[in-house]
Simulated scan of single mutants.
Amino acid sequence: MSDPRKRLSTLGVSRETMARLEIYATLLTRWQARINLVGPDTLPDLWTRHILDSAQLWPMIPSEARRLADLGSGAGFPGLVLAILGAPDVHLVESDARKCAFLREAARLTETPVTILNRRIEQVEPLSADIVTARALAPLSRLLDWAAPHLASGGQCLFLKGRGAEDELTATAKEWKIGHRRIPSLTDSEGVVLQLREVCRGSAQH
């Protein structure tokens, strides 16, 4: 994999934004010593495994999008990264209070306006988001159970998935009708971004 910082520049990330991402990465490394924000074995490859992996969603967000809901934000991937890049009205949903404390500090230091919701996803009032994101959170069928109430009419889901994406799509077809597109991941040769539109409950089988 080439230098992830150079790859980020190809996504249109400015020097000023890159500096804010550097602040975020430094803070995460410092906090990782106290609480488990990311898998310890992924920390040396933080820029590729987490920051670039999240940032690859940025070009997929329509310019007319007005709100983004990130479910199970954890350390801020992908939601806080996307907010730093300029995604509008980002809501980070995370049930772990310690991770929320980290998100608040990261948002403060990077001067990134976000709304942090320290609740379980099921307890959050519908957010009417144009974009719903999630990463390494749950199987697709469960993700859709959580995402659908927060998705605005005409909105879309952007889910980062690994090698099991095809099987998850097959299983999901028993309960959901979705228009989907598979976009190869920039950071994982076996991974994809699932871009889902027209999400509605009901079997796609006839």
Rank of each mutant, 00 (worst) to 15 (best):
K174G: 08
S2K: 08
L103W: 08
P149G: 01
V81G: 08
R49A: 12
S63N: 09
R7P: 06
T170E: 15
A55F: 10
G155T: 02
G86S: 03
H91C: 15
S2G: 04
Q32I: 09
S54D: 05
E22W: 02
I183N: 03
L140Y: 13
L103V: 05
D41V: 11
P126N: 02
T17F: 01
E94G: 01
M60C: 12
P126Q: 04
S185W: 12
L8M: 09
K177G: 10
R30F: 05
S54F: 09
D130F: 04
P78V: 05
F77K: 03
R182Y: 04
A25P: 02
Q56A: 10
P4C: 04
G164W: 07
A138P: 13
G179M: 07
L92Y: 03
G155W: 08
R67D: 01
C200N: 11
L27K: 10
R104P: 00
H206T: 10
P88W: 08
M18I: 00
T133W: 07
P4F: 06
G202F: 08
R15E: 15
A25C: 11
I61S: 08
G12F: 09
C100Q: 03
N118I: 00
G72F: 02
E122F: 01
L127P: 06
V13F: 02
A25N: 04
D96M: 13
R7S: 15
G154P: 04
I121L: 09
A173E: 14
L160T: 08
R120W: 04
V81T: 14
A87N: 09
A173C: 07
E16D: 12
V38D: 09
